[in-house]
């Protein structure tokens, strides 16, 4: 479903991604782990072109995002993203945050958008918060609204960029629970995370990155119990 080929990303002299290659199948949950600055987030952001790769190809269902003829706005509708800092629209209620893009981009009318949004709020357990503004919500609640907002575009794949790193520990569980449900429903997911428990439990595949390269990949079982590379072993010994 997603294919990344020979992906390079440079910020000035700094090479953040070096020759990344990977394929992600439909309904697969891929967890990306690795130390800070290893390029995990940049890799994720290249998949919806929030970062423009320096070179290489990113294909989603066979459509190459790097092709200048590709309508990138159209492609981004297929790729939902959840950010570390939530990035909810502060001047809109939870409900409006969710209905905004379906109305403006998918062209739904308000009633349709509301019906869908209500279902999504239900799904993330926040139907009583529909009319709350983001600042009235806890971090965990904001992040769940953000997940609902991304799902409202009916994406085929969801990208999670360290989406629990900015949360109080007690809030993390609620967000992870929503993500587990999504995984069970068969959503294709790429999850950059420091939550190793989640990675082991939910991931179909784990990718370990360091210094802009994929060092090792395999099932979470292989990576966590039987890592082949010293760098992976060292990292895991520190975080587990």
């Amino acid at each position: 479903m997603i294919e990344v080929k020979n992906l390079y990303k440079r910020f000035g002299d700094l090479e953040v991604l070096k020759n990344i290659n990977c394929r992600i199948a439909s309904q697969e949950v891929v967890v990306v782990i690795g130390p800070s600055g290893s390029g995990k987030s940049t890799f994720l952001r290249c998949i919806n072109l929030l970062e423009e790769p320096t070179s290489g190809d990113v294909l989603i269902e066979g459509v190459n995002l790097m092709d200048p003829k590709t309508n990138i706005n159209r492609m981004r509708q297929e790729v939902g993203m959840v950010f570390q800092q939530f990035n909810l629209f502060p001047n809109k209620t939870a409900l409006q945050n969710i209905t905004m893009a379906p109305m403006k981009v998918r062209g739904l009318n308000e009633k349709q958008a509301r019906e869908e949004a209500d279902k999504l709020l239900d799904k993330v357990g926040l139907n009583d918060k529909a009319h709350a503004y983001p600042q009235q919500l806890s971090g965990g609640q904001q992040q769940r609204v953000a997940i609902a907002r991304a799902l409202a575009m009916r994406p085929k794949v969801m990208l999670f960029d360290e989406c629990t790193s900015a949360l109080d520990p007690e809030m993390v569980g609620d967000v992870l629970a929503v993500m587990k449900d999504l995984a069970k429903e068969g959503m294709t997911m790429i999850v950059v995370t420091h939550e190793m428990g989640f990675a082991r439990e939910v991931g179909d595949r784990a990718i370990f990155m360091d210094e802009g390269m994929i060092v090792e990949e395999g099932t979470p079982e292989q990576i966590f119990k039987n890592a082949q590379h010293d760098r992976t072993k060292l990292f895991l010994s520190k975080v587990l």
Partner: peptide, 27 residues
Amino acid sequence: INKGQMEAARSLGMTSHQAMRFIILPQ
């Protein structure tokens, strides 16, 4: 306005024009 607002809007498939008009400018 925080850069994340533009990124969130774009990640939802809005054009930069829509993101400016519906998300950034009102704030």
